[in-house]
């Protein structure tokens, strides 16, 4: 029997990995990929607690997380494509339109 703390630890490690990627990578597509890692880490926590407490609600929430992730990917990639048209670059450091 795998203890619950193992799942929580794995989830925390994966979340930190995604956080590192979001903060340090320059390529904006990779930053969006790292957000998916963080969402998946949260999903592991939801399903693990749902299994250990015998409550189905955690799995329902994973559905909503997946829905929001799909919406976020569609909008985010649309934004990336229009930014690429504007700046001819996928580099985060080049996006300074809002800078004073």
């Amino acid at each position: 029997m795998v203890p619950l703390s193992w799942y929580v630890t794995l989830s925390a490690l994966m979340f930190v990995t995604g956080l590192v990627g979001v903060l340090i990578r320059r390529n904006i597509v990779v930053v969006l990929l790292c957000i998916e890692i963080m969402l998946n880490a949260v999903n592991i926590n939801f399903v693990a607690f749902s299994d250990y407490l015998h409550l189905i609600d955690g799995q329902i929430f994973v559905f909503f997380v997946i829905t929001v992730a799909a919406a976020e990917v569609a909008i985010g990639l649309g934004i990336i494509i229009s930014l690429f048209r504007l700046k001819e670059s996928v580099n985060m450091d080049d996006y300074n339109l809002l800078k004073l």
Binding site: R26, V29, L33, E36, A74, I80, I81, F84
Partner: peptide, 23 residues
Amino acid sequence: AILVLYLFVVMLLNVHGRGPMLQ
């Protein structure tokens, strides 16, 4: 679904690994 969307955009934008990787 989601991964195919990413692959489409990566191939569409033709991003190569020029320059430093970190910001």
